[in-house]
Design a protein around this nucleic acid. Sequence first.
DNA 1: ACGTAGATACCAACTGTACGGTATGTTTTC
DNA 2: GAAAACATACCGTACAGTTGGTATCTACGT
Lengths: 212, 212
Amino acid sequence: MPRPTKLNPERGDARTRLLEAARDTIRRKGFSATTVDDLCKAAGVTKGAYFHHFETKEALGVAAAQFWAETTGAYFAEAPYHAPEDPLERVRAYIAFRRSLIAGDLAEFTCLVGTMTQEAYASHPAIRDACAHSMLDHAATLEPDIALAIAARAMKPEWTATDLARHIQAAIQGAFILAKATGDPGQARSSLDHLARYIDLLFDPAEPPKDQ
Amino acid sequence: MPRPTKLNPERGDARTRLLEAARDTIRRKGFSATTVDDLCKAAGVTKGAYFHHFETKEALGVAAAQFWAETTGAYFAEAPYHAPEDPLERVRAYIAFRRSLIAGDLAEFTCLVGTMTQEAYASHPAIRDACAHSMLDHAATLEPDIALAIAARAMKPEWTATDLARHIQAAIQGAFILAKATGDPGQARSSLDHLARYIDLLFDPAEPPKDQ
DNA sequence: ACGTAGATACCAACTGTACGGTATGTTTTC
DNA sequence: GAAAACATACCGTACAGTTGGTATCTACGT
């Protein structure tokens, strides 16, 4: 069996395979409980390869958060929830899309950076910052649509589009914790239903958007 | 310096001190990154004492979750948010109370069982179950007031009092993650403001409660 | 009231190993 | 042929857990 090379990467290069292994293993066991050997085994590489690509375990945590930001960023950019013409409908569709992802194995649909944040926030500032970037950058993708929805209704809310976008992320993270505690993804879906209802109530349909 | 005894426990007995150390240390570093030696040092006891009270590290995790349930249970039972006569006002007061607790050091106001759940849900079922119990039992304390608020308005919601009570817990957990990622408790307060607004909108003041 | 036996609570020193990281060699790519 | 991308074998230590004790408490008989 020929070893995968950079120019002929059947399984991707060692670095990518290690980051994929990190994504999957850390979501299941957490950052601290995931050993370097775990990752090497899962990626099918040796420690030599690992430490060739990552100086320390912490550096891998940072890289994994960045990898998460890149891959999920591309995934959400291509997702179908951007289709609706009305900005508020796009926000609604986003939440519905997130809800639709909540199924099957907990370790496969929950959020890597949300998980790592809890372990790293005090001990590994570099990981925490990378997680914060991933989370906040993703939240920021919702801001324009929220701002448009506010403007279309001439609302003067006490909160900002940034606030609401981040609250949406917080609610999703919380829903994941509930699902992990109960072992029941349905708990997370139920929580997202409440979040969707909040958006509905906040942008009161009794005051429909004005056509421009 | 006399060693604290069971009948003269100036600092509490070793078991209690270890549980308090676990509560504080695990919230800061996470469960896996917290070593038995960390806890012994923080509690001022030796490993002999530790393993006299807890068979394994996992057993301590379970005991810490139970300790958390007991102490926070008593704390919330005595808290002032139960004072209002109207059930919905009590729910509102609960969220305001939770909001008021969000200040100072992250490791001091965030939730032990929410943190441990993320690390334990797949690897330590016993810890996960203890965390779930703590979280759900606390959520259940809100159910009667939510149910009363629904009944008083003759609402026929698609959701149940249980659903909403758990969503409130999820939102709070998510707010903590946001605060940890950004290092800013204000992010958590802002998220709880959205949660409070949801409750306001859900129990529409345009339909005030009927006096019985 | 007092002595004492057995249990509980705690301590100090130790152990096997699993961990993060290193040193050095070999293959692949350009 | 030089550099990057790996592999193999190894190292020091920090880790969860053990062993074998000593101090302290409780129950009970006298």
